[in-house]
Simulated assay, not measured.
Amino acid sequence: MAFNILRAARAVVNVTDLDAARDFYVSALGFVETESDGEHIYLRGLEEHNHHCYVLKKADKPGVHALGYKVYSEADLEALSYLFESKGLETKWLEKGTQHAMGRTLRTYDSLGMPLEFFAEMDTVERSLQRYDVYKGSRMQRIDHFNCLVPDVEAAHNFYINKLGFVSSEYTEADGHIWASWIHRKPTVHDQAFMNGEGPKLHHVGFTLNDSSSILHVCDVLGSLGYGDAIERGPGRHGLSNAFFLYLRDPDGNRVELYTGDYLTTDPDFKPIRWDLDDPQRGTFWGHNVPDSWFYEATPFLDIYDNEQVKTQAAVLGDRKAQFTKKYV
């Protein structure tokens, strides 16, 4: 590859009430508020030295402006621009200072119309990794991954691997087709996941915690603060990725995953792990069912030019939920 994409680095999502969003993310979940103004809240994890990883933007309707990837250098931005333009995909440059705390940024679309951004520079701040006196809520450490519903998982999987240099760690297959895909740039299970469904839409942003006890602790915090109904799924352990998880919906319905305990994928001879769609331990290692909302509800993406919702398409593989058969001993 002529460029080096490092990792999933930030997302910009709409919220309708900044105060309600701050109560949820900062007071309950323990995200660090780096800065805010009348239109934005900039959040980060305790170990992060970049200015933010999650931007809450005040708006009248839900939407995701872009999923951001950090690259190694400015030269990588030029190479990526050339790649996307050679594929007939529109690009847009945001010069340094256009976005708060951000260097020069390339915005574009992937092959299925999902808005992406790439940047090499972001303002830095003092880390709070050893400020144990400010740890609260989930004690969130850093952004980990994006998960998106897309109409053609196999096409997305192939584009990101063959054109952007991602590597497969795990995938779900049935009838010879890929129904879900976990791919990475940093050496963990994923920076990006794709699931079969109407899209493109953002399913969730995942954030890394230190350990499973942090997930159990934040469940108690959420309950004590009256956010029990924000828990959509979990706590539990995924078969895919092996991670301990908790899925939450913020006051505007944006879904976040609190995530810990996956594994290293550095070795070049690592072989991607195949899961059957109907394996009951794939999504949840303990085998319990998943709520319908988790399969079908997601946040729309916004066009990089006019902020209108990106058009979606039905899944080419149709609508098929996994069929689990309970086994009793």
Rank of each mutant, 00 (worst) to 15 (best):
F31P: 02
V32T: 14
E33P: 04
E33D: 08
T34Q: 01
E35D: 14
E35A: 01
S36A: 00
D37E: 06
G38E: 14
G38L: 07
E39P: 11
E39R: 08
H40I: 08
Y42G: 02
L43S: 14
R44V: 06
R44M: 06
G45Q: 05
L46F: 00
E47A: 12
E48M: 00
H49M: 14
H49Y: 15
H49Q: 13
N50Y: 08
H52L: 04
V55K: 05
V55E: 06
L56A: 05
L56T: 06
L56P: 13
L56H: 00
K57Y: 14
K57D: 13
K57F: 13
K61M: 15
K61T: 15
H65T: 12
A66V: 14
A66M: 12
G68S: 10
Y69G: 10
Y69E: 14
K70Y: 06
K70N: 09
K70M: 10
V71Q: 10
Y72E: 10
S73Y: 05
A75L: 15
D76A: 03
A79Q: 09
S81I: 06
S81D: 05
Y82M: 10
L83V: 13
F84I: 00
S86H: 04
S86F: 06
K87R: 12
K87N: 09
G88Q: 02
T91D: 07
L94I: 04
T98N: 13
T98L: 08
Q99M: 04
Q99R: 03
A101C: 08
M102C: 03
G103T: 14
R104P: 12
T105I: 05
T105N: 01
L106H: 06
R107I: 14
R107K: 09
T108M: 11
Y109L: 07
Y109E: 02
Y109C: 03
D110G: 01
S111P: 11
S111E: 14
